[in-house]
Design a protein around this nucleic acid. Sequence first.
DNA 1: TGGAGGCGAGAGAGCGCTCTCTGGAGACAG
DNA 2: CTGTCTCCAGAGAGCGCTCTCTCGCCTCCA
Lengths: 326, 326
Amino acid sequence: MKRVTLEEVARVAGVSRATASRVVNGASSVDESLRHAVQRAISSTGYLPNIAARSLVTRRAHAIGLLLPDERRMVGDPHLASVVSGVTRVVRPLGIHLVLMMTGPGTREQALSDLRCGRLDGVILVHTDPADPVPGRLIAAGLPVVLAGRPLKPMPITYVDVNQTAGAALAGRRLKSLGCKRIATITGPQDTAAGQDRLAGFLAEVPDAVVVHGDFTRQSGTAATEKLLRCCPDVDGVFVASDLMATGVVPVLHRAGRQVPDDVAVVGFDDSSAALTSEPELTTVRQPISDMAAEMARQLLRQIEQPRSPATSVVFAPSLVVRDSG
Amino acid sequence: MKRVTLEEVARVAGVSRATASRVVNGASSVDESLRHAVQRAISSTGYLPNIAARSLVTRRAHAIGLLLPDERRMVGDPHLASVVSGVTRVVRPLGIHLVLMMTGPGTREQALSDLRCGRLDGVILVHTDPADPVPGRLIAAGLPVVLAGRPLKPMPITYVDVNQTAGAALAGRRLKSLGCKRIATITGPQDTAAGQDRLAGFLAEVPDAVVVHGDFTRQSGTAATEKLLRCCPDVDGVFVASDLMATGVVPVLHRAGRQVPDDVAVVGFDDSSAALTSEPELTTVRQPISDMAAEMARQLLRQIEQPRSPATSVVFAPSLVVRDSG
DNA sequence: TGGAGGCGAGAGAGCGCTCTCTGGAGACAG
DNA sequence: CTGTCTCCAGAGAGCGCTCTCTCGCCTCCA
């Protein structure tokens, strides 16, 4: 249980600490026989490099942060596990730690100082409040940061997103191809980029759609549907801007005596687990969350490697998942 | 953007590095005037301690790991966000990082070496495979570890769990008090502690219950219900050992022409988001996940503080959440 | 054979911090 | 007034690693 240091390894291998270090870090300019001696010494002693000591001199923490919104917004979010998994896939083989931070009082400041004092090499920001000053301060300080989702107001920051507009258009085309005549949409909050884009994309495809506003919550889906049935009782197709919201929509339709999809076709957005537990299972627009998360990690690593490299954005294509609801 | 060191702070404050360090770490034996001078120097220079340097000498990483099963088992798991949130609540005020690791090839070994080389101070293990040798190796090495959920075979390890047996009994009592005469249960996998305990607890309350086996998945809920309706068509109350499974149960009952809860009462377990998106909303047994996670964090910190302290277990009380299904 | 050139290994100086140990100053008892 | 005890600040030695700089040795060409 006693700690093995590089010094120890070097002694066992009969070389200097510097040479042992070269072998550990894979430098090429080491004689083959010495390299072998060091490798034998490493496995015989069970040597593990001390990351703290390494970080101290390389000024790399070998850790990135994932900044999440508060629990309330995260619980029931279907994507968390996929995001973590996607990032992990990229980051783990490199020995980089993924540090989770959930927003609470002062969390974002904490992240900022972790970044400044070299405890974190970069951060991925999820669900950023448009009024949040932290992303701006991060890019101003030239610190590596990637946003999940397009920022509401344009800023020179790297982000990864799905083509929300195209996804909503996919939904619109689906409803039209089902022969729906009276089409409506229940929107997301219009102070988010996703909410705006999904509405715009849908209207581009179905210009005469009835628009009722929601805010991505289940409750708002229920309320919006009641309103919709009052103002537009002959509706026969509805695009709901999130699956979670759609789980509030379908029961209201059923209670009003409308069969889904026979009387009213419903298309959701997200392909979340809610789409599968809903009855009937939801036709929905899928975002490749895990791949997007992996790309965020890659973008972040690039920025860490090459500080102050220009901001880029990567936009993934959505796809339609046809199930039973529309 | 240049880095400020303790040396710098000490110089500005006109004291030695040691005294500055004492102030930073809150040691009491520092003269009030010097303490103030140092604090002024800290804020004027914007000093942030370098954690790597500190870790190097204190041998504390100030980071703990959360070891999760693979993405497949995690996606759709309702509890991840709550677990993270609960742990964060305890750990963040102490400046301790929460490192997420999702099981993939070699992840657990990685966690072990992170622990050994001092990159992690301890780990919380979630959903551990009973055949997994890692927990055993961790306790053998005297490394701080806490399990989420009772281990299947007894071992001297600290764990936090909900009283699964009592929770299942709660469900049984509910069905009986509703006047159900022909009661069944759809179980979880019997190679997990939760699956076993929920069945045992339910049978203790309803000894003559019909037992059909499932494995916590939605699909298994569907299949089990079909089987149940065939072998026991007069069933009027069913305890489903997880909410997710229950979302597969209810539609089958509906299709068979049974109203929930009028013809068949359904009680789930977990109080997950699936319980809310289900129609009707599920009566279910709630586990205080977030509080349990916080307790896991506290237990882990205690072990880190006092290595090789005896293993303890903390068992939380479940509660019944009455909604519409039973 | 001698000198230049190149390549690989070792010596040693830190990285920024903590912590022990020492020493000086002040208080108080003898 | 001296000796002892206490208390607090500073000096300095690392923690384990990387990386530059230097030096030695071997090769190759003149």
